[in-house]
Write a protein that binds this DNA or RNA. Structure first.
Length: 859
DNA sequence: TAATGCGAAA
DNA sequence: TATCTTTCGCATTA
């Protein structure tokens, strides 16, 4: 009975997206009528790699784990093509269900791979389900590919899906009968989850379980044993802290702690109010409260099942080695440690006086995300993914208001730290004195009472010697227990340095927030053990259809290379030179000019991004627009941004990658990208995020625009497609524009004449030459001064040197290639002949000129 | 308090 | 198929 209800609740929740969004309702017959004998499973469905797979931990998790096996043996055993073909053959061997056309999934039992047809009538439902239980691998136009892994199932279970839910829905969507091997795998994996917990108690970490045998087994593993704090050979055994006595929403069961109960009821009351407020217009069937109740019941039953004995067993592990233990459990043993914080029962740590302001309403998806975190009345660690502008900060703040314990917030920049503090004060009734910023420029003192600390990752992870006062503060931070750690931009955490936060700061729960759970290395999966499973991921397209973020038209503009540029591109030896040539392609410049003109007429606010600083300056100065890059002083930055925001005459600004993260940008409605960082999907998404906040987003027919300018027949084409992958996954469609109508008749079109283009080309060629020689020139010129940073590590002076290079180009006259070649050889001597003071004078003049030009534009 | 050096990230 | 430059924050120095 109960199980039926919980199944319905749990499986129903994801489909709310469908109900309120974009779907075409489709009905598929229930799978029950499939005869389990209709396919001969014995031979076809046996798991190939499994027999050879190393069995380290058979009793806890029987290794199906094709992924683990393949990972270890890929080089030796498989080649990709081979395995693809094998997979294909396997599909064809399986017998299709009669109505397979209605069902969108192909299941590959060899690798736990799932292929989803996007054109299927039940695509949406299937996708919403798959996102919960599997990791997206690739999502192209017609096919999406997912992998079912131990992590992904862990996340699914964490979020409240049961084994039955998973199997039932897989069967429902599958074109073929569900392979036994997959059923078996889901069974084994889900059954072992939640048995072992990582618990922080009185500043010490324990691995805890109700089942002593599981712990004994863990301790037989040398890695785990090595991380143990040896006090006794025995396990510690104590009375279970009454799990049942945790106050559970909607029950009268709370015993023992009246204060906790009172707190709880108050909390529930607020939750309900918020819930009613935010969800009142939509039907409530799948709402957070229902879901929460279901999950709570589900978890309680689980506990009841397991808790025959009311004893828990544990062993202590070295606090510095929790990462090792977690990683090992996750990756090698595939037995992720559960991290849940029973904050209501925690009387050790002081309560923080914080609540959302009464008028504050959170949006339904924020509620959803949080209900996954607090679903069972405890705080489970994990990651919430929301697009930029969708209110990540408020999610973090609401989490803090729910737990009401000391909070530590980590962010990437000092600016963002300030914003977090401001938001806390804006949305909650927290005493501003209790929100302390800890960055290098602002070192608040940590009080002994419960409080909120906002700091930067680098402040906490710093390894070199610290200033005296920051050491003081750090000691206070590491010396105490925190209730909640909020990790903003959590995708940075796997970085070598930043991942240390998880072992340095002792916290009972962790909430990771990000818009783009992406890295170009393969470390993103480390977040599974560093933080926890992905609890919730919003669908960008759905949020924009609902008006929470702006609708965006994306386009890739293909700009043919001019003949001369292409010739040089082919000739160029270094990738550096090549990329500069593609960026500076005159046709691209023209496209940029045209688009800016077009959108300025429409009244758009335009941001142009260029990763390459030389190109940034050339474009911006050529088009007489203000620009900001790393060297730009704070004053000038503010001036430009202010004007962009309030001055109608300034509709376009140019930004280097400074605009990706570290600038608090006013809203824009159009975005043009002329150069970017290789195939970084994160950067692409982050940039797109810059136009999602647009206030006009709810205007009838409003669209924001996102253009990527790409030079044809260059590497840019390749990178561009890579970069778009994430957004395509989110459902964005990139239009390809090969010709901009009216561009040829545009007045004042730059580089329309051959000689202009040649001048540009010589400039570019010289620039790309000097960029590489920079170090040499600098050393030659100023070997007695240590003021210049070495080239290659970049630096604030570096750009100054490049500006010098630009001057050289004009010296060269630029019309004659042969002259250029000659010039290159003799340049250093020529420069050396110049007195240094002249160089600096020139530098200063140059800077003045630039500043003045900017100011003029901003008038 | 502004400039500089350094290490790290993407 | 790996790439490399730009940027940041923190600490120190004058």
């Amino acid at each position: 009975m109960a199980s039926k209800r919980k199944a319905a609740g749990a499986s129903g929740r994801p489909s709310k997206r469908v109900a309120s969004g974009v779907s075409t309702p489709v009905s598929i017959d229930s799978d029950d009528d499939y005869d389990s004998d209709s396919v001969d499973t014995d031979e076809d469905l046996s798991i190939g790699p499994n027999s050879a797979a190393p069995r380290k931990f058979d009793k806890v998790v029987d290794k199906y784990t094709p992924s683990a096996y393949v990972k270890k043996n890929t080089k030796a055993v498989h080649d990709v093509a081979d395995s693809l073909f094998r997979a294909d053959r396997d599909f064809s061997d399986l017998q299709l269900k009669p109505d397979h056309r209605l069902r969108p999934l192909w299941l590959d039992h060899i690798k736990g791979r799932v292929v989803l047809e996007t054109f299927s009538p039940s695509f949406k439902q299937a996708q919403n389900f798959l996102i919960n239980i599997a990791e997206p691998q690739s999502r192209t136009n017609n096919m999406h590919e997912y992998t079912i892994t131990a992590h992904s199932l862990f996340a699914a279970v964490s979020v409240g899906l049961t084994e039955q839910d998973i199997v039932r829905q897989l069967e429902l969507f599958s074109k073929t009968r569900l392979p036994e091997s997959i059923i078996e795998y889901v069974h084994k994996v889900t059954r072992s989850f939640g048995k072992v917990r990582l618990v922080l108690k009185h500043n010490r970490y324990f691995v805890e379980s109700n089942d002593a045998s599981v712990l004994q087994m863990l301790l037989r593993d040398p890695v785990i044993a090595g991380c143990r704090v040896e006090e006794t050979a025995e396990l510690l055994t104590e009375k279970a802290t009454k799990m049942g006595s945790l106050v559970i929403p909607g029950t009268k069961e709370a015993q023992g702690n009246k204060e906790a109960q009172a707190r709880l009821e108050q909390q529930q009351q607020q939750k309900r109010q918020r819930h009613d407020n935010s969800d009142s217009e939509s039907d409530d069937e799948f709402g957070g409260r229902e879901a929460e109740k279901d999950m709570t019941e589900f978890l309680r039953e689980e506990d009841d099942d397991d808790d025959e004995v009311d004893q828990v067993h544990s062993f202590e592990i070295d606090g510095g080695k929790i990462q090792t233990v977690q990683e090992h459990c996750n990756v090698q043993l595939e037995l992720p440690l559960t991290e849940e914080y029973d904050f209501r029962a925690d009387e050790q740590n002081a309560t923080l006086d914080i609540d959302l302001k009464p008028a504050t309403q959170i949006r339904y998806y924020q509620e959803h995300a949080l209900s996954k975190m607090f679903g069972n009345g405890r705080a489970r660690s994990g990651i919430i993914v929301l697009p930029c502008g969708a209110g990540k900060t408020l999610v973090g703040i609401t989490a803090a208001c729910t737990e009401k314990k000391s909070v530590i917030v980590l962010c990437t920049s000092a600016t963002s730290a300030g914003q977090w503090r401001a938001e806390f004060i804006k949305w909650s009734n927290i005493n501003p004195d209790d929100v302390i910023i800890f960055t290098s420029s602002e070192k608040g003192r940590v009080p002994n009472r419960a409080c909120i600390i906002v700091c930067t990752y680098s402040m906490v992870t710093q390894n070199t010697r610290r200033a005296y006062d920051s050491q003081q503060t750090m000691d206070q931070i590491t010396g105490r227990e925190w209730g909640l750690m909020v990790l903003d931009e959590v995708h940075v955490v796997p970085a070598e340095m930043f991942r240390r936060v998880t072992e340095r700061i002792k916290t009972h729960s962790k909430l990771g927030l990000t818009a783009t759970l992406l890295r170009e290395d393969d470390k993103i999966k480390d977040l599974n053990f560093l933080i926890g499973p992905k609890l919730y991921e919003a669908n960008w397209l759905q949020l924009s259809e609902e008006g929470h973020i702006a609708r965006v038209q994306c386009a890739e503009v293909w700009c043919p290379m001019t003949m001369e540029f292409h010739t040089e591109y082919i000739r160029a030896g270094t990738t550096n030179k090549r990329s500069l040539l593609s960026i500076m392609n005159p046709r691209k410049f023209q496209a940029c000019q045209f688009l800016i003109d077009f959108h300025e007429r429409r009244g758009d606010k335009i941001i142009v991004f260029s990763d390459n600083v030389y190109a940034l300056k050339q474009y911006a100065e050529g088009l007489k627009k203000p620009y900001i890059f790393g060297d730009t002083g704070q004053r000038e930055r503010d001036l430009v941004l202010q004007n962009f925001q309030f001055n109608d005459a300034v509709s376009t600004i140019f930004l280097s990658k400074i605009g990706d993260t570290s600038l608090d940008l006013p809203e824009a409605t159009c975005l043009i990208q002329i150069s970017s960082h290789y195939g970084s999907r994160r950067q692409e998404a982050q940039r797109l995020g810059r136009i999602l906040r647009a206030k006009r987003r709810n205007d009838e027919g409003f669209n924001a625009f996102f253009y990527s300018l790409v030079s044809k027949d260059t590497m840019e084409m390749y990178y561009s497609s890579k970069r778009q992958a994430f957004l395509v996954d989110q459902g964005y469609a990139f239009k390809v524009i090969t010709h901009l109508n009216g561009i040829d008749s545009m007045p004042d079109l730059r580089f329309a004449q051959q000689d202009e283009r040649m001048t540009l080309l010589t400039d570019v060629l010289l620039q790309s030459e000097t960029a590489g020689d920079e170090e040499k020139i600098v050393d030659d010129l100023f070997s007695d001064r240590a003021t210049f940073r070495k080239a290659g590590t970049g630096g604030r002076k570096g750009a100054g040197v490049k500006r010098q290079a630009g001057t050289l180009a004009s010296l060269a006259g630029g019309e004659d290639m042969a002259y250029l070649e000659y010039q290159r050889g003799s340049r250093s001597n020529k420069e050396l002949a110049k007195p240094k003071s002249a160089f600096f004078a020139k530098e200063a003049r140059d800077r003045e000129r630039r500043k003045k030009a900017q100011r003029d534009m901003l008038e």
